[in-house]
């Protein structure tokens, strides 16, 4: 059992049947996550990365539904698990942090009360020990004067502190896997860097595995060991973060990298990817990226490319870019 990955997602498919038609938000996503590993899940808005996160926790709101595939946590299948069992698993085994702490934290309850509710939900930590655990975690996340923060309401904290509190809430029951859905996106860059540093430290210290969902390749490259790039509900490229960023094989990943301001030469315009993310209602035939791809051929328009792999670097493309 030692080589069993902490989290193994295979061919996960989550669809939404809306009045306008069937939306294949997640359409055959597979990845594995080992102990203490951080996987960056990258993609534009609407690529299905957040829905992938919610699907793992069984938190997809209707009309969404997991229609196929499997999510195995330490060998245990989570898809189709009874709601009761899923509930006890959330927060304690797999936890999630969201993008906007102003929306996730309850404005009517103090920080301490919200932490207490989360500890009480699993009932493993009692009385005075609870307070100690909250304070310890807050200190480790770099929250100054944690004692007084427990009595504070979310609106009394700065954006950075708020997100740290939200992260602390998610980590309270010491989960093995954390799904972090763009937790630093709403923060300014210096706070973002601090929180990233603290999260990296926490991962090293506790061995928690993480799926870091982001649209920002720069952030992902600083925290993740491996990266998976999503496009229109699928992972189109995955591999070690250095390899993928230095020598992407998929034209979409290349396009993402070229549109990063940090990569541009001063004075030259950025190189955005032409076109827009396709509507998931009208997913293009063949390779979903072909309408925006300079390398597309007749083959791309008709046949959806299978995943190919070399040296742990996978990609779905008929005409991949040169390997490094």
């Amino acid at each position: 059992m030692t080589d069993e990955p902490t989290l193994a997602v295979a061919d996960l498919r989550t669809h939404f049947s809306t009045r306008a038609g069937l939306v294949r938000a997640v359409d055959g996503v597979s990845f594995t996550l080992g102990r203490g590993e951080v996987l960056g899940l990258v993609g534009e808005s609407g690529s299905g990365k957040s829905i992938t996160g919610f699907s793992i926790l069984g938190l997809v709101d209707p009309p969404g539904r997991i229609v196929g595939g499997s999510v195995r946590y330490q060998g245990r299948e989570l898809v189709g698990l009874a709601p009761r069992d899923l509930r006890t698993l959330r927060g304690r085994e797999v936890a999630m942090v969201f993008q906007d702490p102003m929306a996730t934290l309850n404005p009517m309850l103090t920080v301490g009360r919200q932490m207490d509710l989360v500890l009480a939900a699993h009932g493993r930590v009692r009385g005075p020990e609870r307070r100690a655990r909250c304070l310890d975690l807050m200190t480790r996340l770099g929250i100054p004067a944690p004692e007084s923060r427990l009595a504070a309401y979310p609106h009394e904290l700065s954006g950075g502190l708020r997100q740290r509190v939200a992260i602390a809430v998610a980590l309270l029951n010491r989960p093995s896997v954390v799904i972090a859905d763009e937790p630093t996106t709403a923060l300014d860059v210096s706070i973002q860097a601090q929180i990233l540093r603290e999260m990296i430290g926490l991962v090293r210290e506790t061995g928690v595995a993480m799926v870091w969902i982001s649209h920002d390749l720069a952030v992902v490259s600083s925290i993740a060991q491996r990266v998976a790039v999503m496009y229109a509900g699928r992972i189109v490229e995955d591999g070690p973060v250095r390899t993928v960023l230095r020598a992407p094989r998929h034209p979409y990943t290349r396009g993402l990298l070229d549109s990063l301001p940090a990569r541009a030469r001063p004075g030259e315009p950025l190189a955005p990817i032409p076109g827009t993310t396709p509507s998931l209602l009208a997913r293009p035939e063949g390779c979903a990226f072909h309408p925006r791809c300079a390398r597309a051929t007749e083959l791309c328009r008709t046949l959806d490319p299978e995943r190919r792999e070399s040296d742990g670097h996978g990609f779905r493309c008929h005409h991949p870019l040169e390997a490094a």
């Binding site: 304690r92 929306a103 996730t104 309850n106 989360v118 939900a121 699993h122 309270l172 029951n173």
Partner: peptide, 14 residues
């Protein structure tokens, strides 16, 4: 439908 409820559920609240 809001994030507060989703976050609370994700933390394992009944």
């Amino acid at each position: 439908l809001g994030d507060t409820v989703k976050f609370a559920r994700a933390a394992g609240l009944s």
